[in-house]
């Protein structure tokens, strides 16, 4: 994590997508990684929501940081995050009711996603608004990347489809376990293992 202080946009992108990926390296946001990754469409909408919320929360925290008293700092951050999450929830309910129903309580639970709070506290508190926004968006994309990869495996093996389109032949026996939450534990473990091994290879 030597380049955390590097605030050039390219460095932030690489850091958040790979070297310091919120899921691989920081093991943050795991609950939603288990819950929503059995269908690609749901995963895409959910992670898009997280990405936007992270970006705009970081932007807002950064804009307000001079005015926020230290002792209520985290409460105000939570308020800002909750604000954006409720907006996402309302928009989904109004314009994508089907997906809103599928995601159920998980949209509201974006508030508790540690990545958002983590970026607000670790980055936006001490950096300018534009670069904070970028940091939030790229952190969200790092999260999205890993979850989408998991969803590809889970939907393909669990339902034989991708984005709802039949991929596997009709005779394909579905892996029921892939639809259930435990499979996300196995996949996530394998992903973290693979990711860390590749990173170690890069260093030497």
């Amino acid at each position: 994590m030597s380049d955390v202080a590097d605030t050039r946009p390219g460095a932030i992108l690489k850091n958040n997508l790979w070297t310091n990926n919120p899921i691989f390296m920081q093991i943050l946001g795991i609950c939603s990684a288990l819950a929503v990754t059995n269908l690609l469409t749901n995963t895409a909408i959910m992670t898009l929501g997280v990405t936007l919320v992270t970006g705009f929360s970081s932007l807002t925290v950064s804009l307000l940081k001079k005015f926020i008293p230290r002792k209520v700092r985290m409460i105000v951050q939570t308020l800002i995050i909750a604000f954006y999450v409720i907006i996402v929830d309302l928009v989904l309910k109004a314009f994508l009711p089907e997906i809103s129903k599928n995601l159920g309580p998980y949209v509201g639970l974006i508030i508790t996603n540690c990545i958002i709070m983590g970026r607000a506290e670790a980055f936006a508190q001490s950096n300018g608004p534009v670069v904070s926004f970028w940091d939030g968006i790229t952190s969200g994309l790092g999260y999205m990347g890993v979850l989408m990869m998991m969803a590809v495996f889970r939907e393909l093996l669990g339902f034989g489809t991708l984005f709802g389109y039949q991929i596997m032949p009709a005779a394909f026996v579905r892996w029921t376990i892939m639809v259930m939450p435990p499979s996300a534990f196995f996949l996530l473990g394998l992903f973290i293992w693979a990711g860390k091994t590749m990173m170690r290879g890069e260093k030497t």
């Binding site: 005015f67 926020i68 008293p69 209520v72 409460i75 308020l79």
Partner: peptide, 10 residues
């Protein structure tokens, strides 16, 4: 200040 700030933000 803290009370006023939290009130306004909320």
């Amino acid at each position: 200040y803290t009370i006023v700030f939290v009130f306004i933000v909320s």
